[in-house]
Structures are given as C-alpha cells and as structure tokens.
C-alpha cells in the first residue's frame, strides 16, 4: 500500500513538473504574435513623422527609404498593434536610440533653453525696441522745442550791405 502511494506520488510529481512552467526555462519569444494587419500605413506614419532616422541624419522616419527605417516603421506598427500610444512609442524610441530621434527635443535639462530662450529674447527685443522708439520720439520732441529762432538779419552788416548792392543794381 505504502509502495503504491509512493509510486502515485512520484507519477503525480512528474506530471506536475512537466506541466508547470519553471522546471525548464525556454527562451522568451522575442516577437509575440500580434496581428498588425489592422494598423494602416497612415497610422504608422503619423508616429513616424515625429521621429527621425537614427543612422541617416535629418531624414524623418516616415520618408526614410533605408532598411533600418523600414524595420523601425514595422516596430511602430507592432507597438501600435500592442496598444501603445504615440507618446509611449516616442519615449521608447528616445530611450533606445537617444533624444536625437525626436523631431522636437524633450523639455528637460538644457533642452529647456530651447523653449524658454526664444520667448524671453522676443520679449526683451520688444522692450528694447519700445524703449529706443520712445526715447527717439522724446528726443525729436525736445529738438523741436529747443529749435533756435530764425536769425534776426536786421542788424547783420553783411546782409545790409547785400541789400544795398542789390538796390544799386536795380
């Protein structure tokens, strides 16, 4: 009886070991089967156009004709099929290939300058132009006020002589 129990225990143990995962470790399937057929090229390109090819610089991913770009577009298709959002995919690409693949630099670290400096410079420029124009207008005003009166020619000897000469010639 005890022997039968032991045999049963061994058999059950073997069945459990075979059936349960963990005993043998299999390599994970790198490309889980996901149906990507529902994802259109337009959907892929909507994400791809906000990313740049990491190997051929300055070419947006949606128009890049190289083999790596084709792979990346397929990766976008796969991620979309898995339910990833556009931002999540962009984050993934930035993490994998660096910020240079993003069409717009992320607002962090020194990149903040890209977003802060233009408006600051614009405002400073407007203030500067206003001040200059204002002071110019003020300057013009003061010049007209300080305008010298027309010279009194009645006591000018030269003018008197000139008048006399002209009279003589008439």
């Amino acid at each position: 009886m005890r022997f039968i129990r032991l045999v049963l225990l061994v058999v059950v143990g073997m069945v459990v070991a075979v059936a349960l995962p963990g005993g043998t470790v299999f390599a994970q399937d790198p490309t889980p089967t996901v149906d990507t057929s529902a994802i259109t090229d337009d959907q892929v390109n909507a994400v791809a156009q906000e990313l740049y090819c990491p190997v051929c610089e300055n070419i947006p991913l949606d128009v890049c004709p190289t083999q790596p770009c084709t792979q990346w577009r397929e990766l976008i298709r796969l991620k979309l099929a898995q339910g990833w959002t556009k931002d999540a995919i962009k984050d993934y690409f930035a993490q994998q290939y660096g910020d240079r693949v993003l069409a717009a630099p992320p607002a962090r670290g020194l990149n903040w300058l890209v977003y802060i400096l233009p408006p600051v410079i614009l405002v400073a420029g407007v203030i500067l132009v206003y001040r200059v124009l204002h002071s110019m207008r003020k300057g013009n005003g003061s010049t007209s006020e300080a305008k010298a009166p027309a010279p009194d020619l009645t006591n000018d000897a030269y003018a008197a002589r000139l008048e006399e000469e002209l009279k003589k010639r008439r």
């Binding site: 790198p30 190997v55 792979q71 990766l75």
Partner: peptide, 10 residues
C-alpha cells in the same frame, strides 16, 4: 547599434 529588438534577436 540602433536596432530593433526582434530583428536583433533573430
């Protein structure tokens, strides 16, 4: 270098 994981694993 700048690769896609499924193709890299393949």
């Amino acid at each position: 270098y700048v690769d896609t994981e499924p193709e890299a694993r393949a």
